[in-house]
Design a protein around this nucleic acid. Structure first.
Length: 483
RNA sequence: GGCGCAUUCGUCUAGCGGCCCAGGACGCCUCCCUCUCAAGGAGGAGAUCACCGGUUCGAAUCCGGUAUGCGCUACCA
């Protein structure tokens, strides 16, 4: 435990089966953090050994997700599908060394065996039917054209112990392990074989992966031993659970990292939030910069217990990061979301300088970039669509009409247009009419925005501009006094 | 069923034998600020530290058992 390897080399090894989900990315993040903290090497390795499950384009998606989060890799991507000869040769050597054997069992036989085991309440596992086949029997099977798999010979007795950096020593009875497949009949290695070989060949110092891998680690340790290799240091990360405490999956809502990107979470939010899922610095620090997290990250402070992804908290944190942006940065990030989600009738490309004037009004109010178009739609549309009743929310009709008329009269003769001018003009009117500002402004607000909750009135009107405001006030008046 | 891991406020967590009748954060509630909504500020409610034994002068912290949860149990990773 005390003697650290001279060079830290870790890897993120996803299988290209689709969009990486947050738990997976969290593992990538911890590996990356550890590498950067130790001045080590972060390697990207694609575990594409399941031909059936491999998804076209998934590798690009994975790489783009890493890039988006700012997780750069020093080596790779390596592809296991391009290294098949290595695994095959290793498997053959294992057979020669007496550590593995060919198995000719059909999937039908295996399925039947499994069913029987379950029926008899026996622990399911391969029954070692082919473990001691004679060479005559083997030749006969080959003659029948059966393509075998290669299985590992688990020692029948004894126990396998390994140390997990997070959990301490973990012990398994070898008798509870079955002879797992190393090489599939299609010539591809299983995860177990490829993973062990690559981690060794790539000189991985620490294997950091999710907790779900703990049960297969003794197999890996046995494999390292059979190969005559020194196993790496293992550290199994706590899992990320859905709100029902089960393994995070689609039915828990947004799980893949790109969904968070599309919803308008900032990469720094995900980076910070994910770093806190299973790791903590102390009893209070939560908002931390990327550099600070790298500097402070340590495996000693990774927790053992699975964590539930707390949506309310990541939303809060995203709001924090949005507010920490400069107005200009914020506007820049908002523009693509506007282009995408604002009603189609609004002319594209959108007026960027107009967006830049709107952005500061909404920055304190947005938790997600994707909600900004909805929040600011009224700045763009030609005709407001709202129920006239909104104008009479807290006031009787005659007064509302009077408010609109008075304001309209004052503003139409205005020759300047600024928030100060607007406030200096309108606020005194509330006194004259003896109305609470909240009520008075409320009528104007609805008239000018169609909504009851908006950014501050005068700043909003300033951005909207005189023409639009006058037109909307007039329209509101017409709504209340049909001709 | 077997094997493994885990168990502190609803959630994320701090705590590594006395500083803890348990601290912070999100969420929730109240108040302040205020033209609405936010943001911000100040308070508050919320955990018999899963349970039962043991070790100890002293346990959330160490040990054992029980329960519960989760994971694994494929020619998937």
């Amino acid at each position: 435990m005390s003697d650290k390897p001279e060079k830290v080399r870790v890897r993120y090894a996803p299988s290209p089966t689709g969009y990486p989900h947050v738990g997976n990315i969290r593992t990538a993040l911890f590996n990356w953090l550890f590498a950067r903290h130790c001045n080590g090497v972060f390697i990207l390795r694609i575990e594409d050994t399941d031909v059936a499950r491999t998804v076209e384009g998934a590798v690009d998606i994975i790489m783009n997700s890493l890039r988006w989060l700012g997780l750069d890799w020093d080596e790779g991507p390596y592809f296991q599908s391009q290294r098949l000869h290595i695994y095959r040769e290793a498997a053959e050597n294992l057979i020669k060394g007496g550590f593995a054997y060919r198995c000719y069992c059909s999937s039908e036989r295996l399925a039947a065996m499994r069913q029987e085991q379950i029926k008899l309440k026996r622990p399911p596992g391969y029954d070692r039917h082919c473990r001691n086949l004679t060479s005559e029997q083997q030749t006969e099977m080959e003659g029948r054209g059966i393509v075998p798999v290669i299985r590992f010979k688990i020692p029948l007795e004894g126990q396998t112990i390994f140390n997990d950096l997070i959990r301490g020593d973990i012990v398994f009875e070898n008798s509870t392990l079955d002879d797992f497949v190393l090489l599939k009949s299609d010539g591809y290695p299983t995860y177990h074989l490829a993973n062990v070989i690559d981690d060794h060949l790539m000189e991985i110092s620490h294997v950091m992966r999710a907790e779900e891998w703990v049960p297969s680690t003794p197999r890996h340790v046995l494999l390292y031993r059979a190969m005559g290799w020194q196993p790496p240091i293992f550290a199994h990360m706590p899992m990320i659970l859905g709100t029902d405490r089960s393994k995070l999956s689609k039915r828990h809502g947004a799980t893949s990292i790109n969904e968070y990107q599309d919803a308008g979470y900032l990469p720094e939010t995900l980076f910070n939030f994910l770093s806190l899922l299973g790791w903590s610095l102390d009893d209070k620090t939560e908002i931390m910069s990327r550099d600070e997290i790298i500097k402070k990250f340590s495996l000693e402070r990774v927790s053992k217990t699975a964590a539930i992804f707390n949506k309310e908290k990541i939303d809060w944190m995203n709001g924090m990061y949005i507010r920490s942006l400069s107005p200009d940065e914020f506007a820049g990030k908002v523009i693509p979301f506007m282009e995408k989600a604002l009603p189609l009738e609004i002319h594209r490309p959108l007026d960027e300088s107009y967006i830049r004037s709107i952005a500061p009004l909404i920055q304190d109010r947005a938790k997600l970039l994707a909600e900004v178009p909805e929040l600011t739609g009224f700045f763009f549309v030609d005709n407001l669509d709202y129920d006239a009743k909104l104008l009479l929310n807290k006031i009787e009709k005659p007064q509302a009409v009077q408010i609109l008329q008075v304001v309209l009269a004052k503003l139409s003769i205005a020759n300047t247009w600024s928030r100060e001018m607007l406030e200096e003009t309108i606020r005194p009117l509330t006194v004259e009419m003896n109305l609470k500002p909240g009520i008075f402004f409320g009528v104007i607000r609805v008239a000018v925005t169609g909504k009851t909750a908006t950014p501050p009135l005068f700043e909003t009107m300033e951005v909207l501009g005189k023409d639009r405001c006058i037109k909307r006030l007039t329209t509101a008046l017409e709504k209340l006094t049909p001709v």
